[in-house]
Design a protein around this nucleic acid. Structure first.
Length: 425
DNA sequence: TCTGGGGTCCTAGGACCC
DNA sequence: TCTGGGGTCCTAGGACCC
């Protein structure tokens, strides 16, 4: 059997690039994209990175810097990014036999055997050119015998311009050369906590980690880190997953645009999250048996006393009916709500999933006390809402939603809304 | 004043059982 | 003096990812 070869294709500055795509006037302008509520910087254009805007920084900390250099900010326009992502991914699917969409802006390709007909670097350059030409997004490509090494190859392609945006890391020599240059925290799966612990053992570079005995690592860390060590040595331990496994949990939560102090507003917010989560659950064609509701004050505030709490309930039978979960969620909220706090965030979580109709109730289970589910009604609601955004909703979701998130710098939905198509003048 | 959202996997430890 | 042992299941929490 031939050893597998992976290519990691990753879009450069994806959200910022999407924003620039429909604004040719911004070609050389520094641009940042903000998180929900316009709170943090979650993406930066090349120019913005150069000016020293760090990833994840709260906006208020860099406001001066942004003004000084006329950095343009956008609220997250998820509809736009998802649509552009889909275009990139379907193009990639035409270029490789097997593709794993790993996140909104990156995909692993199975390129095993490609080297017999053309050089892997050539293949990478072709991918890059086609995505650039067809969609207008720039990507970098890293190629290696394991996913972890492909990640590092991609990192190298992004970091060093003379690579032309493509790095073939299939040769052992090149692997060791690159690993020696990279600090251990650049390795996929090694976060800040593990970095600290590894450094205490004198492991600072990716190469030092690669050269540590996997059994020693398993004993002192975990099987996960052991796998990383093996992957760094070119042994593929993490397979390509073409088909996304079914979800095990669905979370819907948001920080509020303004603090909530009124219980009715909180009920609206929770109702909205329940409605979103259940819609997602039905899209997954699953039913859930377990519901958690949580809320909290801001963890960053000195003057607000901290409060964070959650409560769960187990349904008698799994359901995907919004009304069933709404009833339960309101009961849970009654047990969580305390007057006087300034709530900053809340959310709901669905877990314990079943395929519809397969749940076997216990012989002595009480008959369902919850309202009966009505899949047809839910289907109808989903259909109406697919045609027209928010055509129909539950009264408890409210219609003003004054607490909803801030998105004051939103760009048009250029590609997904007829009313907002770009206009050529 | 202002700090995202949505996931996964693993481990440790307690409860419980024989 | 010495106070079983091993298995399973569940949950909370920690760590990671983008």
């Amino acid at each position: 059997m031939t050893k597998p070869v992976f290519a990691l294709v990753d879009c450069n500055n994806f959200y910022a690039s999407c924003e620039k795509l429909f604004r040719p006037d911004l070609t050389n302008t520094p641009v940042v994209v903000l998180s929900n509520n316009d709170g943090c910087v979650v993406a930066r254009s090349r120019e913005a990175k150069k000016l020293g805007i760090k990833m994840g920084v709260p906006v208020f900390q860099v406001r001066e810097l942004m003004q000084k250099h006329s950095i343009l900010a956008f609220s997250s326009n998820y509809a736009l990014y998802a649509d552009m992502s889909q275009r990139v991914m379907s193009t990639l699917e035409g270029m490789a036999p097997r593709v794993e969409v790993y996140s909104i802006d990156e995909a692993f390709l199975d390129v095993t055997g490609v080297q017999f007909s053309q050089s892997l670097t050539e293949f990478g350059l072709t991918v890059r050119q086609i995505i650039q030409k067809w969609i207008g997004i720039t990507v970098c490509v890293g190629i290696a015998p394991s996913k972890t090494l492909a990640k590092l190859a991609n990192h190298a392609a992004k970091t060093w311009h003379k690579t032309g945006g493509v790095v073939d890391l299939t040769s052992k020599d090149r692997q060791r050369k690159l690993l020696a240059l990279l600090p251990v925290n650049e390795v996929w799966g090694i976060g800040s906590k593990l970095t600290k612990r590894l450094q205490q053992l004198g492991i600072d570079t990716a190469l030092q980690l690669a050269d540590t005995d996997p059994n020693y690592i398993r004993q002192h860390f975990s099987v996960v880190v052991e796998r990383t060590v093996r992957e760094l040595n070119g042994e593929s331990c993490i397979a390509l997953e073409e088909i996304a496994p079914t979800k095990k949990q669905i979370i819907s939560s948001r920080a509020f645009g303004e603090r909530i102090t009124d219980k009715q507003q909180m009920q609206e917010a929770i109702s909205e999250y329940i409605s979103r989560a259940c819609k997602k659950l039905r899209t997954e064609q699953q039913e859930a048996k377990h519901l958690t509701v949580f809320l909290r004050t801001s963890p960053f505030s000195d003057k607000d006393p901290p409060y964070s709490a959650s409560k769960s309930v187990e349904l008698d039978t799994p359901s995907s009916d919004t009304r069933v979960f709404l009833t339960q969620a309101m009961k849970l909220l009654d047990g969580l709500w305390i007057d006087g706090y300034r709530y900053a965030k809340a959310g709901v979580m669905l877990t314990d999933f079943y395929d519809p109709g397969v749940y076997q109730p216990g012989l002595f289970d009480e008959p369902a006390v919850t309202r009966e589910s009505d899949p047809k009604l839910m289907q109808l609601i989903d259909q109406l809402n697919t045609k027209h955004t928010k055509a129909i909703w539950f009264a408890s979701q409210g219609n003003k939603q004054e607490w909803s998130m801030k998105r004051e710098l939103l760009s048009p939905a250029y590609t997904t809304n007829w009313q907002e198509l770009p206009i050529a003048r």
